[in-house]
Simulated assay, not measured.
Amino acid sequence: MSESKVALVTGAGQGIGRGIALKLASDGFDVVVADLAVQEEKAEGVVNEIEALGRRAIFVAADVSRKADVEAAVAAAVDQLGGFDVIVNNAGIAQVKPILDVTEEDLNRILQVNVNSVVFGIQAASASFIERGVKGRIISAASIASIQGFPILGAYSASKFAVRGLTQVAAQELAPHGITVNAYAPGIVGTGMWELIDAELSKINGKPLGQNLKENVDSISLGRIETPEDVAGVVSFFASENSGYVTGQVLLVDGGMLYN
Rank of each mutant, 00 (worst) to 15 (best):
residue 104 E to C: 01
residue 171 A to V: 11
residue 186 P to S: 14
residue 161 F to C: 02
residue 147 I to G: 04
residue 100 L to R: 13
residue 118 V to T: 09
residue 131 E to L: 07
residue 167 T to I: 10
residue 95 Q to W: 13
residue 127 A to F: 03
residue 145 A to Q: 11
residue 173 E to T: 04
residue 122 I to H: 01
residue 95 Q to F: 15
residue 94 A to C: 13
residue 145 A to H: 09
residue 107 L to S: 00
residue 199 A to I: 05
residue 173 E to M: 08
residue 171 A to M: 10
residue 114 N to V: 05
residue 172 Q to Y: 09
residue 167 T to C: 06
residue 189 V to R: 11
residue 131 E to A: 04
residue 136 G to K: 03
residue 141 A to T: 13
residue 89 N to C: 14
residue 176 P to V: 03
residue 192 G to T: 11
residue 184 Y to W: 12
residue 157 S to T: 01
residue 167 T to G: 04
residue 146 S to Q: 10
residue 140 S to Y: 02
residue 134 V to T: 06
residue 154 G to F: 04
residue 108 N to I: 10
residue 150 F to K: 10
residue 151 P to T: 04
residue 173 E to D: 08
residue 124 A to Q: 06
residue 200 E to A: 12
residue 116 N to D: 10
residue 189 V to P: 11
residue 115 V to Y: 06
residue 197 I to A: 07
residue 175 A to L: 12
residue 110 I to M: 03
residue 111 L to T: 13
residue 144 I to K: 14
residue 158 A to Y: 01
residue 130 I to Y: 01
residue 191 T to L: 02
residue 106 D to Q: 04
residue 146 S to V: 04
residue 172 Q to R: 14
residue 96 V to T: 15
residue 137 R to D: 05
residue 160 K to F: 01
residue 161 F to N: 02
residue 154 G to A: 05
residue 102 V to P: 00
residue 196 L to N: 06
residue 191 T to V: 00
residue 145 A to R: 06
residue 188 I to A: 08
residue 109 R to P: 07
residue 190 G to W: 12
residue 141 A to K: 00
residue 182 N to Q: 03
residue 166 L to P: 07
residue 95 Q to P: 07
residue 98 P to I: 13
residue 166 L to H: 07
residue 133 G to R: 01
residue 113 V to Q: 09
residue 110 I to R: 02
residue 113 V to N: 14
residue 111 L to W: 13
residue 143 S to A: 09
residue 200 E to G: 07
residue 161 F to A: 02
residue 180 T to N: 13
residue 122 I to W: 09
residue 136 G to M: 00
residue 116 N to Q: 09
